[in-house]
Each structure stands twice: as structure tokens, then as C-alpha cells.
Design a protein around this nucleic acid. Structure first.
Lengths: 155, 155
DNA sequence: CCTCATTCGGAGAATTTTATCCGAAATCCA
DNA sequence: TGGATTTCGGATAAAATTCTCCGAATGAGG
């Protein structure tokens, strides 16, 4: 409804790393298998998160990725800036190239307040917060095992 | 941020038709040129809106599209059901296959209220309403002419 | 030094979304 | 009836997104 797969993977991966002891590199392979996402694709995304200064990467044995100092304070909006681009929150709902208070599409005035709420939420959710929510066990980061999804009737 | 191009075109086209005298078929060509969208692509979308029972279509001379009876009461949610599919509002923000109150991603509880607001808005905005908003002249349906977009300095 | 494990970076394949093309069918009108 | 106009429907192309592959560079540890 809102985010590209790329953004979803990026957020999931970053939260996952944030749940791990800081400073200990996490393997791409491990993240991908935990989140159940394509490893090679995730690797690309990890690269871009490195370039976006959210992660450190280490090659070779004992390599992997870990959060940069202070990166656990990163909020979702900052991540989406990297994965969705800077115009993410600036686009018109109906797709008009220009849609501002001065010259707007017929949804504009109704949409702006909702957009503000979305942005506020994305701004307040940090990796730290989300990681803690996962650590409590109340929330999930990866899909349920298929066995739980569609319980099979005994043969 | 939310809607596919297809959905945006569909909504724009339907609002446009709703601003026209009911019962008088509007040409695909005319809609496309007014909205400045690719005519052949729009034609496909119009077809699917016919199949979705929002429009009548007439072939031949004096042909075109017009709203079905009562279709001006259609709200955006109904349109999006056609263009985005039924799972539009049911997807998890982080992309989990299953994310419900019982077993949720760490964004779930914060996201649900916002999603509700979005759905409520989409449910209350009808073609009628939106068309009227356009007819007042306060709101636009199509892009500004490029001359207004990027005023050129005299040579 | 060599080997192994990892990320890097570029190329490219697969899929989905967006867009185009064209012949056929329908409809109006002369 | 025939010509003009329009949508219909199927095939296909183009572009964007998602995903894969592989050789090269890097680093750890023997």
C-alpha cells in the first residue's frame, strides 16, 4: 500500500541488526535467511544502506554488517529517504506533477493531514524502539513458518 | 506514495467524466488529452472500469464512455478495489504475509489507526463530490501547462 | 604466503507495471 | 450499402522493479 519491497527489506534488515549485540557483524546470509528474503537482492540493499551511512560493512572472515555509531536512533523516514528517494512524501495522491496549497488536486486538502500523520509516525519510529518491540517477543519481524500459516490436516 | 499510476489515471478519468453532462458519452481521446495521459493505456483502464460496472461504453460514431446510473456516488475505495485489487488495504506495512492484532509486525499497532483514517477518507470521497470540487475552479484535475510550470526567461 | 569467507560491483535475467499497436467488431450517418 | 468513427481485445514493446550470478577485492587465520 505504501512501501516498495526494497524499503520493506531494508527496514526489516535494519531492525534485525538492531536486535543483535552492537559491534558484532551480522552476515547478509544470516539476515536473509532469518527474514526469508532473497539473499543476493538483500545484499544489494545492504550495500546502498552502507553508502547511506547507516551501516558499516566488513569483508572477509568475521565480516558482515553492523550499525554505525548512533544509527540505532535512525528513524524510518531517514531510511525511506534512501530507499524511496527524496520525493517520497512530496507526491500528489492523484499523480499531479504540481499539487500545493496554492494549486491543488481535489484530494489535496483532505490528504495533507493524513500525510502529516504518516510522516510523523515514520519520524518517531526509530530502529532502537522497533528492535526493542521485537525483543519483547510481542512483535514479529519475519513471517511465521508455513506450518503455522496453513495448518495441514493429518493424512 | 500510495497509488499506482493505473489507479491515478482511473480516478482522474472518472472524476473528469463526472464533471461532464451525464449521459453524453465522452471520448477516450478527449479524456486522455485533457488529463495528459497516454491514450492507448487509458483505453485499457477504461475497459476495466466498464467491466467493473462503473462505466458504459458505446462504439462507433457518437461513441465514448459515460458513468453508469448511480456511479457518481462511487467512492474512491470502490475504484481502488478494481485497480489495486482486494488486498489493497490488507497488506502489512513491512510486508509480512500475516500481520494481525494477534501476531503483528512491530509497526502494526501504530499503523492500524492511520490506515483506518486513509480508508475512511477513501470511503467518503465520491466522484460527485470530487467533480463538484473541480467544477468550482478551486481544484485541478490535470497538470498545469508547462509554460506555467517553469517560466522561461526571455532570450 | 595460501586458503577460505565475506562484501563489492557490474552485468544481466525475470517479473511486473506501464505503454503501444493493430485488426476486428460495433455504430452512426449519408 | 458503404465509409467514417469509436471501442474491444489480443499481442507486443518499453520501462521499472525485483532478483540472480559471478569475478574481483578484501580481510582473517593458518
Amino acid at each position: 500500500m505504501i512501501l516498495s519491497r526494497t524499503s520493506q527489506y531494508a527496514i526489516q534488515a535494519l531492525i534485525f541488526i538492531a536486535t543483535r549485540p552492537p559491534g558484532e557483524p551480522v552476515l547478509n546470509r544470516e539476515i536473509a535467511s532469518y527474514l526469508n528474503v532473497p539473499p543476493a537482492y538483500l545484499a544489494k540493499i545492504m550495500q546502498s544502506l552502507c553508502k547511506g551511512n547507516l551501516l558499516y560493512s566488513y569483508r572477509g572472515r568475521l565480516g558482515g554488517f553492523c550499525l554505525r555509531e548512533g544509527a540505532s536512533k535512525t528513524d524510518l523516514m531517514q531510511i525511506l529517504l534512501l530507499t524511496e528517494g527524496p520525493s517520497f512524501t512530496q507526491e500528489c495522491v492523484l499523480g499531479l506533477k504540481v499539487c500545493s496549497d496554492a494549486t491543488a488536486c481535489p484530494m489535496h486538502t483532505k490528504w495533507v493531514p493524513i500525510k502529516k500523520k504518516v510522516v510523523a509516525l515514520l519520524n518517531e519510529q526509530t530502529l532502537e524502539k522497533l528492535a526493542r518491540a521485537v525483543q519483547t517477543g510481542k512483535y514479529r519481524l519475519s513471517d511465521l513458518p508455513t506450518s503455522l500459516l496453513a495448518p495441514m490436516r493429518r493424512a
